[in-house]
């Protein structure tokens, strides 16, 4: 079973500035009292937005309809909650461009088919300024070419090889790939002494 192949994402972008934006800010814990991910989109950045009183990228009319979120460094740090990318995905984002991403957040995004690519600091800053000044421009993430294209240029984009390959080949839903190992899973288990209780 494979999922959609994702070789590029294009569309309009929105910019959330700042480093170390944690998953508690992306989706406060009180909204995780649920047994499905349904409806999480409306709570994305809930408290930041309330405190900004309308002056937040997710409430900025100029960014309406954006599907690419441009962020700073270490985006998605903190909790492992998949509710964070789920909330952003359900809000309407299907790709992220940033300075860097926290590891668990990036892994969760890959499992949902949402590319996270990083740019060098100067390029990211130029992209943020360009999108802020001209939000209607088209931004394109090209995973095949490892590039981000926007009104002010073409920037080299970094993405981990394994992640890139999973997205390009449509194997980002890992369950099917892992199941292909078949009996090799039990084979590995059989060589681990603790799984048999250290039987002699």
């Amino acid at each position: 079973m494979t999922e959609a192949r994702i070789d590029h994402v294009k569309g309009r972008a929105a910019v959330v500035r700042g480093d170390d934006i944690d998953t508690d800010r992306i989706i406060p814990a009180r909204f995780m009292r649920c047994v499905t991910f349904d409806g999480l989109g409306e709570y994305a950045f809930h408290d930041d937005r309330a405190q900004a009183k309308g002056d937040h990228a997710l409430d900025d009319e100029r960014f309406l309809g954006a599907n690419i979120l441009v962020v700073g460094r270490n985006f998605g740090c903190g909790s492992s909650r998949e509710h964070a990318p789920q909330a952003l995905m359900r809000f309407g984002f299907n790709a992220f461009i940033g300075g860097s991403f926290a590891e668990i957040f990036a892994g969760n995004c890959t499992a949902l088919g949402l590319p996270c690519v990083t740019l060098e600091a100067d390029d990211l800053s130029a992209l943020m300024d360009s999108v802020s000044a001209e939000p209607t421009q088209e931004v394109e993430i090209d995973l095949e070419a490892r590039e981000v294209r926007c009104a002010v240029g073409i920037f080299p984009a970094n993405v981990r090889d394994g992640t890139r390959q999973q997205l390009l080949e449509g194997t980002w839903n890992a369950t099917a790939v892992l199941l292909e190992a078949g009996d090799a899973i039990e084979g590995t288990a059989g060589r681990l002494p603790y799984l048999s209780g250290f039987a002699g």
Partner: peptide
């Protein structure tokens, strides 16, 4: 630490 899709995996 893992996300929910990985819990499924």
């Amino acid at each position: 630490g893992i996300g929910t899709s990985q819990v499924r995996d």
